[in-house]
């Protein structure tokens, strides 16, 4: 990927607060149209990284280029091309959803008609005349995202848009994020949900204590882990001894309810099981980003 076609280029940025190295040498590039995720537990340095990239904070050292330009000091030429949702939902007092969008739009010289389109996009058309403080958490997040998009920016930065939402609201928001990507936007977003990053992101940077530990498409990260696939069957369908003897099975063990086989070659194992008609209650669990995190840091992932 050449730098000319990169929407975001970050080179070795660092930021310390006293002794604390909030961001400790982070580098990455994001291609145009890419959905890029920064994944990490609280305090990993995601927000600090994002705000340096947006031009809200000055890094102690390192360099940032957005669409070929430096975002710091405040670069008015660049501002219309980036859309930002801050970690806190920032709204004007006492305005309705539509008025919020119109007001943010006017800061960019956008016509009022766009506000209605944006409400449609984030599924808030029926809440247009509702005051912002009367919306639910998920609706506020969606409105906040719409406010970041109202001026049709090329790059969108979203800081934990799905934090503190219930599972249904999170899933609704995923649809919104996918719709934004389909419009050809570059999305840089942070999350502490592993499953979500795995589903949404083209590439994901796993961050911890101010550093990027790994950066790849989620599938590559998981595959690179070379972790075994776990196949679970109902207890009694097959004995532990028979199971261990199957081709490709590394290990088999049984508890009160189920029999679990570990394998690095799931295909022959599954066909052998099918031949024996032993597919009752079959579940296959492959490695996830959680395993990747555990492998990288040596500790369980805790958001």
């Amino acid at each position: 990927m050449t730098e000319e076609r990169s929407a975001v280029v970050v080179r070795d940025i660092r930021k310390s607060y006293g002794e604390l190295k909030a961001v400790d040498g982070v580098s990455f590039t994001v291609a145009e149209g890419e959905f890029f995720g920064i994944l990490g537990p609280n305090g990993a340095g995601k927000t600090t990284t994002l705000e340096i990239v947006e031009g809200l904070r000055k890094p102690d050292s390192g360099e940032v280029r957005l669409l070929g330009e430096s975002p710091w000091p405040r670069n008015v030429k660049l501002l219309p091309r980036i859309g930002v949702q801050l970690q806190a939902t920032s709204f004007f007092d006492k305005l309705t959803a539509k008025e919020q969008l119109q007001t943010f739009g006017s800061l960019y010289g956008v016509s009022h008609g766009t506000a209605a389109d944006m409400l449609e996009l984030v599924g808030l058309a029926d809440k247009a005349n509702e005051q912002e403080n009367k919306l639910s958490g998920g609706q506020r997040q969606r409105l906040s995202i719409a406010c970041a998009l109202v001026h049709d920016p090329d790059i969108v930065f979203l800081d934990e848009p799905t934090a503190a939402l219930d599972p249904q609201a999170r899933r609704n928001l995923w649809d919104v994020l996918r719709a934004i990507q389909e419009r050809g936007k570059t999305i840089v977003y942070t999350t502490h949900y592993l499953d979500e990053a795995e589903i949404l992101c083209d590439r994901v940077a796993i961050m911890d204590t101010g550093r990027i530990l790994a950066l790849d498409p989620p599938a590559v990260l998981v595959r690179g882990l070379d972790a075994p696939t776990h196949v679970t069957l109902q207890k009694g369908v097959l004995s532990v001894v028979d199971a261990s003897a199957l081709e490709g099975v590394d290990e088999a063990h049984e508890d009160e309810v189920s029999l679990t086989l570990s394998t690095r070659r799931p295909a022959p194992v599954l066909s052998a099981l099918a031949e024996r008609g032993a597919l009752d209650g079959l579940q296959v669990r492959t490695a996830t980003l959680e395993d990747v995190f555990l492998n990288l840091t040596g500790r369980e992932y805790r958001a």
């Binding site: 501002l79 806190a88 939902t89 920032s90 943010f104 800061l107």
Partner: peptide, 16 residues
């Protein structure tokens, strides 16, 4: 209120 709710920073990110 604008500083606490980050409206100030959000405005700063707009070309105004």
């Amino acid at each position: 209120s604008w500083r606490r709710k980050q409206v100030l920073r959000r405005i700063r990110l707009a070309p105004v």
